[in-house]
Design a binder for these strands. Structure first.
Lengths: 226, 226
DNA sequence: GCAGAAACTTGCACAGAGTGTAAATATGCA
DNA sequence: TGCATATTTACACTCTGTGCAAGTTTCTGC
């Protein structure tokens, strides 16, 4: 029962006002409508007006929330990656970054979290327009990881972390996470069974392992693990 | 004097026909005009029609060559990365992939090659539209590296390379290359002096070194090398 | 060299994307 | 309740991107 007593000493989630609730609902209605249309008509076969009608809003309002149909769908990916980032930030500050990344990514291999992402993957396969927005989402996440790692380092040490180290590492972590997702999807499609998710988890662990070991050439023997 | 004797036994560059020359010239005229307009008006402040006028072609013809203004500009990045890929393919097949990547990237730190890229970087800083196309170009290159590495491995060994290894490595190499370029640009701007290019070269080498050593946490001491 | 084929360019028309503006409506706050 | 502020909406407008058909250039075989 989340009471919001005015005298509460803990800031709580600061009282979601009516306006914020409405906006969140509209936003959700738009992404839901977009996903429905993507399912029923396929990528590129529906317009912003279609989405607006399906979400019971005006075309103009759609553009108050998203800049394009792709952006509306990419919000799913953004949600997924924001989740990953939140997990990353929860890790202890003295942990090696790669280990934090591994732990954060493994958290994502859970049905509720991965389901929308998997569906989006399967529906947007081989569609250039959507792929660009996906790339943008992953890139945005890279930027956020850079920020998070920088803050973490500045917190524990006094100095600043080398910029190349930071950017190269963050980019590689994201690339490896993406590679694991790609391989998983190619191998399992949108299958969300426990077995399939275990494979995803292992792929994410393996990918971080490869990164941590500097991609030793012998590592390609790992293919017979599956 | 590039004679094209019919009896020549070597296939040569197979006789660039008039049509191909015209197309190449038009393509070049479009990218040149785009870059000129980017310089003079800034990103987002000119239309396809402006480019078409400047290149002395019709609007419709522009779209026969490129799908958008961004795509026209991204052809610069594509050229740069195609160059990198060609260097990669020239490396001996038994060399470790990371070493090949390092060598290929270092080849790019040369004024003629890097100049257009550097200018594009400086002009499209903080412009979302252009950045998306840039990301797409890097991603496209990742795909090509995956292909190249797969072929190379299949050539020397009989078996297939583990898909995760391949994708994670290719993605990380590209990420690190990009990170090095980003840091270089942040540090040196569009400066193309020998000293600046030496820094770029060293950044690329360092980035590949980080990748090869698995991002050992002590590596961040490298910042005092510069 | 010349006719016909094939490739390329161009103008036109049209659907859709994206944005500024101002009026209408909903929400927050005293 | 009543005013201030935030949000939605309709409308108009520019620009994008594409199909189509008519014009122009290049290529091919004769």
């Amino acid at each position: 029962m989340p009471t919001t007593q005015p005298g509460s000493t803990i800031p709580d989630p600061p009282a979601p006002s009516r306006r914020e609730l409405n906006k969140a609902a509209t936003r959700q209605a738009i992404t839901d409508a977009s996903l429905r249309l993507l399912r029923s008509k396929g990528p590129g076969n529906f317009t912003v007006e279609d989405i607006a009608d399906a979400a019971a809003i005006s075309r103009r309002t759609f553009f108050n929330y998203f800049g394009s149909t792709e952006a509306a769908l990419a919000s799913i990916t953004h949600g997924f990656l924001d989740n990953a980032l939140a997990q990353f930030r929860l890790r202890p500050a003295d942990e090696p970054i790669l280990e934090s990344a591994r732990a954060a990514l493994v958290q994502l291999a859970d049905p509720m979290t991965v389901a929308p992402m998997a569906e989006l993957y399967s529906l947007s396969q081989s569609n250039p327009q959507l792929n660009r927005s996906e790339l943008e989402a992953w890139d945005h996440c890279t930027g956020q990881i850079i920020e998070a790692a920088r803050e973490r380092f500045a917190g524990t040490h006094g100095a600043e972390l080398d910029e190349l180290y930071l950017r190269a590492l963050a980019g590689s972590v994201i690339s490896c996470g993406k590679a694991a997702m790609d391989v998983w999807f190619a191998r399992c499609g949108a299958d969300l069974s426990a077995k399939s998710l275990a494979i995803l988890r292992q792929l994410l662990i393996d990918a971080m392992g490869l990164l941590g070991s500097g991609f030793m050439p012998t590592a390609n023997l790992s293919s017979d693990r599956h």
